[in-house]
Amino acid sequence: MEQPRNMLQKKQSWRNTVEAFIPKFLLICALLSVFTTVGIILTLLFETAGFFEKVPFLDYITGTTWTALFSGDQQKFGVLPLISGTLLVTVGAAVVAVPIGLGSAIYLSEYAPERVRQIIKPILEILAGIPTIVYGFFAITLVTPFLRSFIPQLNFFNALSASIVVGIMIIPMIASLSEDAMRSVPKNIREAAYGLGATKLEVVLKIVVPAALSGIVSSFVLALSRAIGETMIVTIAAGSNPTFTFDPTSTIQTMTGFMVQAAMGDITYESLSYKAIYAVGMTLFLFTFVMNMLAQYISRRFKEEY
């Protein structure tokens, strides 16, 4: 009788050590993203708390004058001008990007022949990969002069130009996320409508867009969150004059614009101006955090089950 082979034999011990060590190492790497989040929140909280020891919270959220980089008594920390500037740019970007992005998504998902799609998709990817500094340059050298030839009273630094270019920047994001949502609508639902004699437009508007609505809306929210956090375009093109206004032709400053301006100036780590960067950063973080959660909620909560 043949001696049965032993299945109890130990493997080399170094191999067991490797097998035991690797998941631990990988877990530590994975936890880094948790630490990053914790780091961001703690960093912002700590200095923001210091900021609110000096500046009353109510003054911060209701004040309409922001002169954080002035000295002494002239310093005023009313954040509303920065928020109005940010919202002005974001709303303007939405006006540009939502119809164009959605239109492109519909075209690519429903109308475009496969060959055209294969040409346009990479172009949109390139557009999405262009650094914001390039868009900023585009805004002041091309878009602003172009707009000023129509609107002579337009300031050189203005919210309008910045918001148009921020809108252009987020078009690929809306187009590609919405297209994904629309393409995941199953074919048989479309075919049912075509079978009843619907035109393509009717299928798009009555079947595909409603079915993909959660994905489409969440792409809007994500893109606008991106617009809120956008920095270089607004820093270059919108100016650095915090003004509580909703007039798109005026020079304004966004939350991100202030942070850049402050970081580039000569301020000491202990000063109130320095702490103001964190307070504004916290405000910005909260805005984008809420919008990202909202986008996730929309796409999960209203997900169509096919």
Partner: peptide, 20 residues
């Protein structure tokens, strides 16, 4: 929790990473 963190981090504005 780790996955939630990663998807949220993807949406944090780059300037906030700068602050970190």
């Amino acid at each position: 929790f780790i996955q939630l963190n990663i998807s949220n981090l993807a949406g944090v504005p780059s300037i906030v990473y700068g602050i970190l």
